[in-house]
Design a protein around this nucleic acid. Structure first.
Lengths: 117, 117
DNA sequence: TTGACATATTCCTATATCAGAATATAAACT
DNA sequence: AGTTTATATTCTGATATAGGAATATGTCAA
């Protein structure tokens, strides 16, 4: 089996840094494809392809306006990522790291106490 | 060019759902490989392979204890993911969605006002 | 040393990219 | 109709999986 398709879910879609960059641009508001091309300095076909992936996972919406296609962020598609990673936030907080240090200390003391082992 | 290696960064490493599951198990505390195998019902070699990827991106640490290898979560490696996705949180909050609705309304009224266009 | 247990690595194969180039589609303008 | 502008799709090639099976490595125990 190969790696899951990038269109499988938001996790796979945003694993590609350029797609994250595109979303970051769209966070500033609705934009036509060529704006993204200019801002990020990428080739137009690649941007279109990345946008397709983002559209397939629901992270962006499109609407036609004349000959332009206006892309708009749909942040809700990123919620599963946020929901998954949020609980880990505590693990790099200073308070948590102090707690870990204390637990480590306790454990070592305990091992020292127990005569056998 | 192919897709970036899973070991490129945390985003790629965590795109695979079983690797997320492994991290979720380790969030409960240090565990030997076979515990993970049992809890998740995966084949042992695959778990070892996933653990290697997680180790390469710094999401887990290992230490040997007898014939076991004890894996431990290193949440700090997930911080870039959290940092990236956090700003999008507002975009699916109720308050934000109400705001968007209001802006949409204003825009339509504006278009209605301008006689030419 | 032999055996049992725990974990890691290698080999294989099907598949899904990703960039780049070329081309296709579509709308607006003349 | 023909041209320009904007965007999407197709084709190609190199590469990186991910799982399964088989095997290797490492450690303790008798």
């Amino acid at each position: 089996m190969a790696r899951a398709a990038t269109t499988t879910d938001a996790f796979n879609a945003v694993a590609e840094p350029r797609r994250r960059a595109i979303l970051d641009v769209l966070a500033g508001g609705e934009r036509p494809v060529n704006d993204i091309v200019r801002v990020l300095g990428l080739a137009q076909p690649q941007v279109s392809k990345h946008l397709r992936v983002l559209r397939e996972v629901g992270a962006v919406d499109v609407r036609g306006e004349g000959r332009q296609r206006l892309y708009r962020l749909n942040g809700r598609a990123l919620k599963p990522i946020h929901d998954w990673v949020k609980p880990y936030e505590s693990s790099w907080s200073e308070r948590f790291e102090r707690l870990e240090a204390v637990l480590e200390e306790l454990k070592q003391k305990e091992e020292g106490d127990a005569g056998d082992e």
